[in-house]
Design a protein around this nucleic acid. Structure first.
Lengths: 253, 253
DNA sequence: TGTGCAAGGTAACATACGTAATTGAAGTCG
DNA sequence: CGACTTCAATTACGTATGTTACCTTGCACA
């Protein structure tokens, strides 16, 4: 799976054998879903781990009275939760935004990885730790950032993650989220999301129309969102995201 | 370390050899800190993983202008982040509430665990996944719950975690957090935290005075916080937290 | 055994954001 | 191609929570 390997390679150098294993695992048991559909529901017993091959999805939780919070977005190349099948039941649901293809990764796959593929183990740990860091940053956003900062911050995060997966074209990208989605993710009302987006547009920070987002000046958007990319841990051992940095041949694992 | 083993045993049955290993690791390199002191600072390179032996601490992030968010609390028996030393630098800080003793767990320790102690591996995965679930629930709280619900929810969480660590006495427990701490954790102002606590007191949901918290009726407090304990994943394979459930001899791992 | 400082508590006032309701634009499906 | 349905946009108004300021309580330490 291109996006996954591209993403993991950012962090750990995978051997050809590693890559073959990942490729096989991500083509063996593939399922397809339509847009706006649940893939997994709270209360179910997690049997497999899901790798997003294409499309956007989100993880969400819901209160009995209907209030709903999106707690994470999944983009192509993302793994839902390494090793969740250890748990007895899901404490949240996963739904699609667009049409989505996923590969189911079994417990046996992870056992095999643990037994003989230390580079992949390291890379999966990195994925796990980064996801935890993202969740913390969302806590920070919801607790401390204003509506404008929060929105700008979220857009920066999605932008950088898309870029790392090779899914941006110049300064624009596909953006299938509705204002309702953004509201559920930022903890704001739809009305206030609309106001906030207007403000970002007025400041020339974003162009958002139809299902396309343009970020003319990432620096400025990051500034507006008090965005510090360190939590994404996109560099390691001197390897930088898109600066051709020191070509240290770091053996990780 | 008693609290740690007690907590992990809730989930995975550890062999005597496993327990010896954990006990050795948690007595080898111990450090002591005073109250209101930083253990780790954002930007540092994580060299070890920290196991809290005694005392309360928190993980926090700070914006340049001083706004600060507590994103997690650490109680005795908690491990800060399994395998963080994989990352290049900390994206947050860890500070103490009370005096704290910690054990430093090295990379070598985790390598040894990975190589020969599958039960501990499983238990650590469980710890990791539960911590992620807790972080998600905080996101939910900050995004959707009202001040009152949020506070009640947080108190329930801390209560259950303390109870699982054996740190409650009947319906009361030590509670060293200040209203300022609660404000930074809930994303509310100190004034509003005060108002909210008054309201909880008026409703007879808590008695909070000095450094002691009493929860006369956990059910009612949970109800007020829309608290669903499933996210703590405190039961597994039929083993319930404090109901003497089916004594399934489940071999995990 | 006071004395100083952090923590808790209160009040008056300010505001960022939510709610409800309506309208128009844009897809989508029979 | 018209009829739905969803999404975006906008207005008027309401409120939960923030801010500032000040006072009280409690406890650590001289």
């Amino acid at each position: 799976m291109a996006s996954l390997i591209r993403k993991l390679e950012q962090f750990a150098r995978l051997s050809p054998v590693d890559q073959v294993l990942l490729n096989r695992a991500s083509t063996e048991r593939v399922r397809h879903f339509g847009p706006r559909v649940d893939i997994v529901r709270e209360g179910e017993k997690p049997k497999d781990v899901h790798l997003i091959l294409s499309g956007w999805a989100y993880r969400y939780k819901q209160l009995e009275d209907g209030r709903r919070q999106i707690v994470a977005f999944f983009l192509p190349g993302d793994i839902c939760d390494v090793n969740v099948f250890i748990l007895r039941e899901m404490d949240h649901s996963i739904g699609t935004v667009t049409a989505v293809s996923i590969a189911d990764l079994s417990r046996e796959f992870f056992d095999k990885v643990a037994a003989g593929h230390p580079r992949i183990v390291t890379a999966f740990w990195w994925e796990t730790l980064v996801n935890a860091a993202i969740q913390r940053e969302w806590t920070m956003s919801l607790g401390q950032r204003t509506a404008l900062e929060r929105m700008a911050h979220l857009l920066c995060e999605i932008w950088l993650r898309l870029r790392a997966a090779g899914l941006t074209q110049g300064d624009s990208c596909d953006f299938p989220l509705t204002q309702g989605d953004l509201a559920d993710a930022t903890g704001l009302s739809k009305v206030h999301v609309n106001r906030t987006l207007q403000e970002l547009r007025a400041g020339g920070l974003i162009v958002l129309k139809g299902k396309t987002l343009v970020v003319p000046n990432l620096e400025r958007l990051m500034h507006a969102g008090l965005f510090n990319p360190n939590y994404l841990h996109m560099d390691h051992e001197g390897r930088q995201l898109d600066a051709a940095a020191t070509p240290t041949d770091a053996a990780v694992g």
